[in-house]
């Protein structure tokens, strides 16, 4: 039964509409980031057009341009462009910090999770489901409860306020989901593939490394993207485990002070923070949709 033309068009319209609704907050956010101050806080109603877009919020947060210079160019406060605040708004170091931590923790997570997922997919042992449940249960603890002991632990290990420390903690958060995801990818590869390689004289490690892993490359990429996103967006642990290192979400939170909320810089850095993850998502979109079956269709 082929759908009629009307049905197809209705579906298209509906699909675009739904996606548009979900896109609206981000679009509004991005729009706000190029608005002058007065357009963000217009009480008469939402402002979509009729303002001169300004790149100043991005120049301050991403290029480290001093807001004094921007004030000069624009003819000073009469043009309403001078923004204030106490801390430095130059966020380049934060983007770098976040990138190092997200990449590091993604790599560590993938390393540990791939090994475990392959094993859990291929080997039968008693307590396997319990082991998986135990891994999943690592996600049950509220982050605030992890903060207290980990602060003391990191103090003794010298890991407080280090990249290594945050990489470890973010990996800890990501491991449960990564193992579940990767196991589902390995489950998709028929066992016969392994058996053939083993019969050919390959060791288990060679089979894993040279045969199976290359077959689930796409799935690993999809998992990597999710790990990257979750590390890139994590807030609470990054806040309390660091002082000098400022990941992007923590940096943004410092733009909200008791004396002013710097919406211009918040929206600019917020928009910039979305872009890298979105590019990765586009790259692995196919695998992502394929991958999140979590293996549950299999009995």
């Amino acid at each position: 039964m082929e759908p009629s033309r009307v049905q197809m068009i209705t579906r298209d319209v509906l699909a675009v509409l739904v996606v548009a609704i979900f896109m609206f907050p981000i679009a509004w956010w991005a729009l706000s980031s190029v608005k002058p101050y007065s357009a963000i806080f217009d009480r008469s109603g939402p402002v979509y057009t009729g303002f001169t877009p300004t790149p100043d919020n991005y120049r301050v947060t991403l290029l480290g341009v001093s807001r004094v210079d921007i004030g000069m160019e624009q003819g000073g406060e009469a043009a309403g462009v001078i923004k204030g605040g106490a801390s430095s708004y130059d966020s380049r170091q934060s983007l770098l910090d976040s990138a190092i931590i997200a990449v590091g923790s993604t790599a560590l997570t993938l390393l540990l999770a791939t090994l475990a997922a392959y094993c859990l997919s291929r080997m039968q042992f008693s307590g396997q489901q319990s082991f998986l449940f135990w891994i999943l249960s690592q996600r049950f603890m509220p982050p605030i409860a992890i903060v207290i002991p980990v602060v003391f632990m990191f103090r003794d290990l010298g890991l407080r306020d280090t990249y290594t420390g945050l990489i470890l903690v973010h990996s800890l958060i990501n491991l449960p989901l990564a193992v579940l995801l990767l196991k589902s990818f390995f489950d998709d590869v028929p066992r016969e593939v392994d058996e053939a390689a083993l019969i050919d004289g390959a060791t288990r490690w060679q089979t894993f490394r040279r045969v199976v892993v290359p077959m689930v490359k796409g799935g690993i990429a999809a998992t990597a993207v999710l790990c990257f996103i979750f590390s890139w967006t994590e807030f609470l642990l990054s806040l309390f485990l660091t002082t000098s290192i400022r990941t992007v979400p923590v940096k943004i939170s410092t733009f909200v002070t008791s004396t002013a909320t710097e919406w211009g810089y918040i929206t600019a850095l917020g928009t910039s923070a979305i872009i890298p993850s979105f590019i990765f998502i586009l790259l692995v979109q196919r695998h992502l949709v394929r991958g999140l079956t979590l293996g549950s269709l299999k009995e």
Binding site: A15, V16, V19, F22, M23, P25, I26, W28, W29, S32, I229, W232, T233, E234, F235, V248, P249, I252, S253, V256, W263, I266, T267, G270, A273, I274, S277, F278, I281, L282, Q285, R286, L288, V289
Partner: peptide
């Protein structure tokens, strides 16, 4: 529809702390 599916995942990449501020602003 591939593009639509990719766009649909966009909210996931926003840091939850930023999402909070986004809705606070709106």
């Amino acid at each position: 529809y591939g593009i639509l599916r990719a766009l649909m995942t966009l909210p996931l990449v926003v840091p939850p702390a930023v999402t909070g501020m986004m809705f606070l602003l709106m």
